[in-house]
Amino acid sequence: MHAILKDFLDKWVYPTGFTGPGVDFRLRQTERCLPLWDKLVLQALKAAETDLASGSDEYKAARARGGYAAEGPFMSLKQMSTQILSVSTDQQPKYIDLQRMRARQIWDEVKHGQLHADVMLRGGFIKREEELMDDPRANTQPKLSYFGMTAMFPHIHPLARAGQHYYNESMACLGITATLSVIDDDLIRHQLHSQSAEELMHFMEGKYQIDAYALTPEDQKPIEEVFDFLLRPWAPEPSRALGGAA
């Protein structure tokens, strides 16, 4: 296991203020995630080294465009709004915390879009952010199904998103740490540092939701099915912004 992953596990995954079936369930899912998280770290390191060795600044633009495609303001509003809607009115007394966290995440994600745009602007790749709206690379994600799954959560279960939070937002954290360990470019480092705390917050939301709410097999089932999907060999890979190939 890579040291970056081990450090993340020791600091954020294993310590918890909860005990009980939610934690037990989460730790079982964690075991399933570990090989993929480890692979992600290695992939992010390799991608960062390849980018540095490219001898060109184009990698900065490629990462920023990929990030904008996933976290640009319009895409963020679309994605996060569907998650807010996953709590029906009769469930609100139980799950209003989820809506509060996702409302905060809407703001986080649109800010991340702005950070990617900032790389493009300050890197001299564009003159105005609006130019990105005319670039298909900044408006198409590597796998539509990941984003569409998010949009289906209102029809599945309020806690289902916790699977994506836990599995994918951890990848964001690990990808950022791995990339920062290699790339010394100010633009890239500023962008990654500026969003890293929020990515960690999103991961911790998933962790909290599972520990605190996923206490019965009925509540665990929709989350486990999301893990099943994400862990399929053909499941979505990390975006270019995090060192993925797509």
Partner: peptide
């Protein structure tokens, strides 16, 4: 599931 999710994402 993946195909349905793909189509649902086109709503964006």
């Amino acid at each position: 599931g993946a195909y349905i999710f793909c189509l649902r994402a086109l709503a964006n």
